[in-house]
Lab assay of single mutants.
Amino acid sequence: MATKAVCVLKGDGPVQGIINFEQKESNGPVKVWGSIKGLTEGLHGFHVHEFGDNTAGCTSAGPHFNPLSRKHGGPKDEERHVGDLGNVTADKDGVADVSIEDSVISLSGDHCIIGRTLVVHEKADDLGKGGNEESTKTGNAGSRLACGVIGIAQ
């Protein structure tokens, strides 16, 4: 089992970053940390998408990683996509320092995120509470600013 993974985020604009993942036990939580720069100040949706395909930019990554066919939600919700990591918060300089621990994603097994795409979005994720159909699919997080395929790390 891989215990570490990394993702280099890039987009068409100024947004870029490096996100690290570490899972010490196969059924334990995954620590997610790193930094994203070039964002507007505020909240930005942060999700693992189904495919590791960036051939047409971030759009070819498909929908959120959702092997259990659930509705979109927040990272602490029972009803959520596996890939729903909530929001990252950018400061006035456009930098989001990421520090998350998640017990639904994994670096092995059915919820493995390796080979899938991590995406940072234009807007805040409403965590499935926006009151419309799009909220239950995407959290109304808007366009995909930057993305990268999650790969095994040393």
Rank of each mutant, 00 (worst) to 15 (best):
L85C: 00
S35G: 07
D126Q: 07
D110I: 12
N54W: 10
I152V: 13
T59C: 11
A141S: 12
N66C: 09
G128R: 09
K129I: 12
V32H: 03
T138G: 15
D91S: 09
A141H: 08
K92F: 06
T138K: 12
T3S: 10
G34Y: 01
V32C: 12
G11E: 06
D102F: 02
E133A: 13
C147W: 13
D102S: 14
N27M: 06
G83R: 12
K123M: 10
N54Y: 11
D53S: 06
A5Q: 04
G45M: 07
G115Q: 01
A153E: 11
K71H: 04
G62S: 08
D126R: 04
V104E: 14
C58G: 09
G142N: 04
S69G: 15
D97E: 15
D91M: 10
A56K: 12
G28V: 07
I150L: 01
N66D: 13
I114K: 01
S103I: 05
V98M: 06
D84P: 01
I18L: 06
I18N: 10
K76G: 14
G38F: 00
I114V: 10
K10E: 13
E122C: 08
E41Y: 04
Q23G: 00
L145P: 01
N87H: 07
L68W: 04
E133M: 05
G34L: 00
G52A: 06
G128S: 10
G130V: 11
K4N: 15
D110C: 15
H121Y: 13
L145A: 12
N87Y: 13
N27D: 15
E134W: 15
F65M: 08
G11S: 13
D125T: 07
Q16V: 11
T136V: 12
S69L: 11
D53H: 14
S103P: 15
V95W: 15
V119N: 02
E79D: 14
T89Q: 04
Q16S: 13
P29M: 07
S135G: 07
K24C: 07
G52V: 05
W33P: 05
I113L: 05
G83D: 06
A90H: 01
V104I: 15
H121I: 08
L118W: 00
D97W: 12
K37H: 15
